[in-house]
Amino acid sequence: MTQTQTMLDIHNVTKTYGKFTALKGVSLSAPEGEVFGLLGPNGAGKTTLLRILATLLRPTSGTAAVAGYDVLRRPEEVRRRVGVVNGGMGLPARLTGREVLRSFAGLYGMNRAQTEARIAELDAGLELGRTLDVRAGDYSTGMKQKVVIARAVIQDPPVLILDEAASGLDIFARRTLLDFVLATRAPGRLTLYSTHVMSEAEEVCDRVAILHEGQLLTVGRIPDILAQTGEGNLERAFFSLVRGGEQRAV
């Protein structure tokens, strides 16, 4: 048996915005081959944590390594290996999907043949179709989000960070996205999936972490969390953990 590689290693990370502390000592690790869920109510610190992993924010203290590279010391190596999607991302309105994908492929140093092959692959996987040759300004939410995802994975990164990536999508677009995420559950890869929607997490995540007010309440496989809380589904388990967390904080 070959040893599985640790793709994510977070150690005691804190993050403050001015006087406000958004993350209070978070430690986590995840091996390759997982879809890892990050759950938590609004303001829990999910986006903050994921932005630290994407090297967009610097941790105030603690360390984080993605695909073996420290986010503070080797940010460019990290960026080469992550694709990031969040719900608020958009596209340049006056460019077509294909132009956006080509331009980003260029930023990752891909040559023409690689780029076109990859675009064809993503076209099939994400069902982009004629969307690719329409200007992004004319996209529906679903079309836009699919192209945003295609753009994030254009270089086929081993680590994929999806932050509320399914928000605003209809059931068809959501289905395409979830199938795409499930397909990333493969050796050498890690997908971080943050969401509010428990049913999504139950479907795609191997393990989840529940974050509340900047602290981890629990990390584990979904069946284990259900057993630990004695609840029948993840949503109930989530409430029970969050309430428990609030009571402990009082």
């Binding site: 960026r79 991302m89 980003f104």
Partner: peptide, 14 residues
Amino acid sequence: ERGTLESLLVSPVR
């Protein structure tokens, strides 16, 4: 405003 800056900044461009 369009939410494209973040994607540019996570690309491996200095």
